[in-house]
Simulated assay, not measured.
Amino acid sequence: MKVKDMSEFKRLQLIAEAVRYCQRVSAMGMPASAFSKALREPVHFLWERRAGSKAAAAQYRSRSAVGLSFGREELIYDHAVPFVYLQRRLLALDTVDEHSIRVLLQQLNLIVLITKDEDEVLKSAGLNKSMPTDWDGNDPLARYRAMKIELVPNRGAVNGI
């Protein structure tokens, strides 16, 4: 069955199964570096990319990224909240079910298209894989605000994503 033909419930069930697996192996002592891909890939392909393309998955673009496209190495597909934060929250769930997974994905799994230069700005500030030290835990766009990267809604986004 193709992902685009799966119901949201089925996709969330599969992600929940990946979370339970990662919780089990983590509890057994496996380091996160050895199992994180087992969670990152289902989230990416079953949730983020459920509409198909990366451009359709992104809710926002930086103002500088408007009009740019993939294929010329102009755009960076960026998680507004670095994946490690979502991973920690998913692995900390006491009740792993479709509802709790959906809530965290909707809260922390926001995709933004930025330019290569803007990605370098985040990297130079130490914000490519972390949130600002004063992050309130709620604003998923805090890294861009901190670096004055202006975001606009992505016209190419698929509704409901």
Rank of each mutant, 00 (worst) to 15 (best):
E74S: 13
M1Q: 09
V96Q: 10
E48M: 09
A157F: 03
P132I: 08
N159Y: 14
V3W: 02
A65P: 07
P140K: 10
E48N: 12
D97C: 04
R24A: 02
T115A: 08
K2Y: 12
R143T: 03
F35E: 01
R143V: 10
P31L: 03
L105G: 01
S53A: 05
K4D: 11
S53C: 04
S53D: 02
G52Q: 03
T133S: 14
R145P: 00
V84R: 15
A32N: 00
R40F: 14
L113E: 04
P132S: 06
E118M: 08
E73A: 12
I76C: 12
Q107D: 13
I76V: 15
S53W: 02
F83M: 08
D5H: 13
Y77E: 01
V66E: 11
S64E: 15
F83S: 02
I149Y: 09
T115R: 07
L151K: 11
V103E: 13
P140A: 02
A80H: 05
D117L: 13
A32Y: 00
M1Y: 09
Y21S: 00
R143G: 01
A34R: 12
Q59V: 12
E17G: 13
S7L: 11
V96K: 03
S62N: 04
E98P: 00
V81A: 07
Y77T: 01
R155Q: 14
A80K: 06
A58C: 01
K4T: 13
M131T: 06
N128R: 14
V84D: 12
G67K: 05
L141Y: 03
R40L: 10
R40Y: 15
R50V: 05
M6N: 09
R88V: 10
S36H: 10
L90A: 04
L105C: 03
S64G: 06
E118K: 04
L113K: 06
L68M: 12
R155S: 14
Q87L: 09
K116L: 13
E120P: 00
F70P: 01
Y21H: 13
I101G: 04
G67P: 04
A157D: 01
E8F: 02
F9E: 15
D119R: 13
L39E: 05
D94G: 14
S26G: 15
Y21D: 08
T133F: 09
E41N: 15
A38F: 10
S100N: 15
E74A: 11
I76R: 14
A18M: 03
R72L: 09
E150R: 12
T133P: 02
M147Y: 04
S36G: 07
P31F: 01
V103A: 10
R24T: 01
A55I: 09
G71M: 05
R145I: 10
H99K: 11
Y60S: 04
W135H: 07
E120G: 11
N128V: 08
I149C: 05
L104N: 06
V158Q: 15
I15H: 02
F9V: 10
A51L: 08
E150M: 09
S33N: 07
G29L: 05
L14N: 07
Q106T: 08
I114C: 07
